[in-house]
Write a protein that binds this DNA or RNA. Structure first.
Length: 422
RNA sequence: GGAGAAAUGGCAGAGUGGUCGAAUGCGGCGGUCUUGAAAACCGUUGAUCCGCAAGGGUCCGGGGGUUCGAAUCCCUCUUUCUCCGCCA
């Protein structure tokens, strides 16, 4: 969430930022500041009453110790009114605080100055494209047909065991998945990321910390009996490692990478978007996360963007990078780059990575701070990106590398798969 | 799953109703000494909220309660440890 300091210091800029994010209630900003003013006034009164109470208590204690019971009892009688005042003021204070937080949590993150206005994916800006789009001299098959033809992914079997969106990978399909995970993790390790194997199930506090809760709980699979959720991405458990943490400046940046299965309900999706591997309820992903000094987070965002580009380059997949417009940038992000690969038989771009700087938006919720060399504490910046999400990479690999005699995979994967072709 | 014990500052560890935000030790930081370092000695060292400041409020696993007053008493939740059972 945004800091009150920002709302107060840059009220009008915040409202402009909200407009770029297509957030329609700019009046919330003023309401929040007003509630905070009320809260502060209430705190002053309450603290004053509490101080009087503390003084009275000490006097009573002193009276008892000097054996003056009568005086003690007399003082005691006077504390009743104070006690009542404190109770009332505390309740009012807490109510104002709660009302303020309830509104504050509704505000999305501020967009970075480079983020342009826009309503939807249509308005995203392509900032880079590279790689050759394959041409076929034969009729190229979409990946779901290739998967059936070579018997490497069984969608029907997944339907039987669980339901739609839970495919079963078999033989070389399973091995290829494992190869991609190994490849992505090794590359992350080479880039200085510490590999993490996080829990796949999270509690409410963690969901709140990264912003999935309270509003997006419908997108996660829930285990209500235990108040737990299946992770929609490793971002949640990995970033929450740093919840309520105070880092030292010289520990920065923290770089973590994690492979995990990801679970998403994806309610309301339909049609060609969900065909084959395009959109699943369970999928694999390697995620990279960094905790950065506020002055360095945008340089680090570029570094992470380059890391992801390097992976796609080595897989020799044609890809493009988009800078998301205000309307398509997520609630929690300040700036997001999406990576899309071209899947040659479907003839469409598929999103395979999203790399974002959340600035202090998540850190503020999580109380993730650092102490600088002067001893001042301030919020850190959090960033993350997919590096990479597997299913659509798999789809593009199958489609783009198909020939009439088989699917010949890119060289970098051979040491991981142990085979050249499918 | 059954029985018992515990949770205090960066760490270790005192404190069982009043001046305790909290002894002491270690660690950290600053200094004296030293050619430099170590040792020794001296000082300092939590977070957060309100306030221009002075100052004040809150925090001893989380939440609630008793009391004029709670780290200390009560309830509850969570976590950890020990023993038994089960088990990849």
């Amino acid at each position: 969430m945004l800091t009150l300091a920002l709302l107060r210091a840059k009220t009008e800029e915040v409202k402009k930022g909200l407009a770029i994010k297509n957030f329609g209630q700019p009046e919330l900003v003023d309401e929040i500041i007003k509630l905070d003013d009320e809260r502060k006034a209430l705190q002053r009164d309450r603290d004053e009453a509490q101080m009087q109470m503390n003084i009275a208590s000490k006097e009573i204690g002193a009276a008892f110790q000097s054996g003056d019971k009568a005086k003690a009892e007399e003082l005691k009688a006077k504390t009743a009114q104070l006690k009542d005042d404190i109770k009332v003021l505390s309740e009012k204070h807490d109510a104002a605080l709660e009302a303020m937080n309830a509104k504050l949590i509704l505000l999305p993150n501020m967009p970075h100055p480079s983020v342009k206005p826009g309503k939807s994916a249509e308005d995203n800006e392509t900032i880079h494209q590279e790689g050759d789009i394959p041409e076929f001299s034969f009729e190229a098959l979409p990946h779901w047909e290739l998967a059936a033809k070579y018997d490497i992914i069984d969608f029907e079997l997944g339907n039987k065991i669980t339901g739609a969106g839970f495919p079963v990978y078999k033989g070389k399909g399973a091995r290829l998945q494992r190869a991609l995970i190994g490849f992505f993790l090794d590359r992350a390790t080479d880039a200085g990321y510490l590999e993490i194997q996080p829990p796949l199930v999270i509690n409410e506090e963690s969901g709140y910390g990264t912003g999935q809760l309270p509003d997006k709980d419908g997108q996660m699979y829930a285990i209500p009996e235990d108040k737990l959720f299946l992770i929609p991405t490793a971002e949640v458990p990995v970033t929450n490692i740093y919840r309520d943490v105070m880092l030292k400046e010289d520990e920065l940046p923290k770089k973590n990478a994690a492979y995990s299965a990801c679970f998403r309900r994806e309610a309301g999706s339909y049609g060609k978007d969900v065909r084959g591997l395009n959109r699943l309820h369970q999928f694999d992903k390697v995620e990279i996360v960094q905790i950065a000094h506020p002055d360095k987070s945008y340089a680090i965002l570029e570094e992470m963007k380059d890391h992801v580009a390097g992976l796609l380059r080595d897989l020799k997949l044609p890809f493009r990078i988009l800078r998301l417009c205000g309307g398509d940038t997520s609630f929690t992000a300040a700036l997001t780059y999406d990576f899309e690969v071209y899947s040659a038989a479907q003839k469409r771009w598929l999103e395979v990575s999203s790399v974002s700087n959340f600035e202090s938006f998540q850190a503020n919720r999580m109380k993730l701070r650092f102490k600088d060399k002067e001893g001042n504490t301030s919020l850190l910046h959090t960033l993350n990106g997919s590096a990479l999400a597997l299913p659509r990479i798999l789809a593009a690999l199958l489609e783009n590398y198909q020939t009439e005699t088989g699917i010949y995979l890119p060289d970098v994967l051979k040491t991981y798969t142990g085979f050249d072709s499918i």
